[in-house]
Nucleic acid binder design. Sequence first.
DNA 1: TTGAAAGCGCTAACAC
DNA 2: GTGTTAGCGCTTTCAA
Lengths: 376, 376
Amino acid sequence: MLEEDAEPDGSARQREATVADVARLAKVSKATAARALGGYGSVNEDTRLRVLDAADAVGYLPNALARTMSTGRSHTIGVVLSDIENPFFAKATRAISDVVQSAGFDVVLCNTDENPHNEAAAIDLLLEKRVAGLIVAPADRNANGAVARVTAQGRPLVLFDRTVDDFECDSVIADNRRGAYELARVLLRAGHRRIAFLSTLGQQNYRRGDRIRSTSVADRVDGFEAALDEAGVEIANQIVLLDGERPGIDPLLTHAVHHGATAIIASDSLIAQHVLHGAKNRGLAVPEELSLVAFDDPPWTSLSNPPVTVMAQPIHDIGAEAARLLVRRLDGLKGDVQRIVMSQRLIERDSVAPPRVKFHDLDHQENKPGLPHSCE
Amino acid sequence: MLEEDAEPDGSARQREATVADVARLAKVSKATAARALGGYGSVNEDTRLRVLDAADAVGYLPNALARTMSTGRSHTIGVVLSDIENPFFAKATRAISDVVQSAGFDVVLCNTDENPHNEAAAIDLLLEKRVAGLIVAPADRNANGAVARVTAQGRPLVLFDRTVDDFECDSVIADNRRGAYELARVLLRAGHRRIAFLSTLGQQNYRRGDRIRSTSVADRVDGFEAALDEAGVEIANQIVLLDGERPGIDPLLTHAVHHGATAIIASDSLIAQHVLHGAKNRGLAVPEELSLVAFDDPPWTSLSNPPVTVMAQPIHDIGAEAARLLVRRLDGLKGDVQRIVMSQRLIERDSVAPPRVKFHDLDHQENKPGLPHSCE
DNA sequence: TTGAAAGCGCTAACAC
DNA sequence: GTGTTAGCGCTTTCAA
C-alpha cells in the first residue's frame, strides 16, 4: 500500500502510483516492472504475473505523458476544424475518429470557430502536446503560418474540406466549383436571373475576384460565377453575400430579397435552415416566391416543407480518406503530395420553381446606381 | 542552427529544438532560458529578448508533455460522450469548450458510440494522459468502473445528461422524467391511448421496471409510464421500444405501427427524423394518421412538414453548467456533491392530432395473446 | 531474464 | 538576476 497524503478536506487521496511503487511491491527492479507493465522486452511469466498483481494492488495507471517523452511516440493525432455544430464537420469527425482509432491512434479535437487566431492557438497546442500528425480544415487560405508550422516541425498534415494557398500539402476536398456550377444551372434552367449566394464565411463586401478566405466557399463562388457567365447572365445582377464576422444570416436574406433575388444558393445546411426560417417569418412562399438550393444533405432537407434541392457531399468519405492518408504518412509513406478531390451529387427536390418576376424590366436597370452586388 | 538529420527521402528535418538549444544560442543557462520562455521567475529584460530571439531562430516549440510532467498540471480536461453526430452532444460540447477554454483549459474529446467498452477505454486514455478533470455522459448507469476510476484517482469529474447508480458525483442533467410526463400528457389529451416510446438506447425487449442503461432514457420512460398510470391507461397497451444494439429506428417504427400505435414519442431529434422519414415512406400522414412528439428542438423541427411538437432541453446551459462546475472543482472548490437538474420546455407545433381509431374496440383486446409491449 | 543507470524536456529549489 | 542540480515517470541501452 502506498502512503496516503491527508487532504485539506480530510479525505485521503492516494499519490499516484508509479512503476517504482509497483516494482517495490513486486520486489523486482523498476526496469523489470516496466517491462511487464508495458508488455515489451522479455520477462519471466511468474514475475510478470507478480508485477501485474502488484500493479492493481496499488492502483497503477500508466502515465502516457512519460511514455511519450521517452519513446517519442504519442499515438495521438489532432483534428482542428471550425465548427463542430455544423453537421458537415460532425460527420467528418466521426469518420476520422473511426479510421484513426482502428489504426491505433487516439484523437484530440479542437474547435476554432472560423477564427484564424483560435486556429493558430489550437494547432500550436496540438504541436506542443506532440501529436503524431494533424488533420485540419484551415480557416484561412492566406499565409497560414500555423498550418505551415506543422510541416516545418516535420509532422504529417492532411488538409480537408479546404486548402491553403502556396502550400504543398496532402488534402482531401470536394469538387465545390463543379457543385456550385451545377446548382446555379438548376436555378438558371428554372428561369432565374437574379440569384444570391449566401455564406457565413469570407469577407463582407465581396467584389468579383476577391480572395475568399475559405477555399471551399471561394470555389463555390467561382463555380457560381462561371455558370452565370456561361449563360450570359450579367454577374453584376447577382448577389454574393458573405457574412464575415457577423452572426446571422437573416440580414443577408433581407438584403438579398430587397435587391430582387428570386433564388438563393445556401453554402451549407445551417444557412439553408436559416433561409427557410427567414422565408417563413417573412411570409415568403418557397419555392413560389423564392427558390432555394443548398450544399450538404442532412436528413431534414428531405423532411422540410418544401424538401430542398441539394448538392450532397460525400462527407464520410472525405473524412475517412483524409484519415487514411494521414495514417499512411504516419506509417512512413513518402512520395508526392496527394490532392484528392471528391465529387458531389445533385439531389433535386421541390424547392425550386420558376421566378414570378419577369426579368426584362430588371435587366434595363442594370446600370441603375445604388444596386449593389455585395453586402456591406 | 541545429544540426539537421538527413531523412531517408533526402529531405532535411530538424531535430526538435529544446530549451537547452535555445540557452546555448543565447549564451545563458538552461534555467534562465526556461524562465524567459515560460514567463515565470524573473529575468533581465535584455536577456529575455535575447532568449526569445534565439528561440525563434531555432524554431523552438515548448513541449507541453515535459511541462506537465514537471509541474503536474496539464491544463487540459477530457470530455467523453456517446455520439458527436447527435446535435444534442454537438451543442453541449460547444458550450463546454467555450467555458473551459475561457478558464484557461484545453479540451480533449472522445466519442464512445454508446459502447461501455469504448467508454472505459476513452476514460482510461484520458486519465493516462493526465487530464486535470473529466466531463462524461456515461453510457451505462450500472457499476461503471471506468467512471469510478476517475474519482478514485482523485480527479474531479462532472457527469452530464446521464448519471451512474450508487455513485456520488457532481452532475448536470435535464428533468427528463417531467419532460416525458408532459409529452405523454399532450398525447393523452389529444385522445391517444396507444403510444410508442422510441429510443436507440437501452436494452431490447424492455419490460416495465427494467433498468435502462441510459438514465436519461430511463427517466423518460418513467415519466411516460407515470403519465399513463395517472390517466388510468393500461400500460400493457403501450409500446416501449428500445433498440439495444441494432442500428435502425425503422424496424421499431414498423413494429409500433403494426401493433396499433397512434402516436410516437421520439427520445431524441435523430429518432424523430427517422420516424418522419419512415412515415413518409409508408404513406402515413403525420399527424392525421400518426402523431409525433420528440425531445430536443433543433431548427429543423419547426421547418419540417409538419413542424413537430417538442420538449426543448436547455442544451447549452447543461454543457456550460457542467463545465463551470468542473472548473470550480479544479480551482479547489470542496464541499457537497452537486446535482443540478434543469427543466425542459414544451413547444407545441403541428405534429399532434386526435387518433383516427376509436379505442373502445382495442381496449377489449387487451388480453389478446401475442400483443407485445416490447420489441425483441 | 534481470538490474543499474542514463536520458526524454521541462520546472523548481537552492545557492550565489 | 542567474546558474546548478535534482527530479517528474517512463523506456532503453548495456552489463551481469
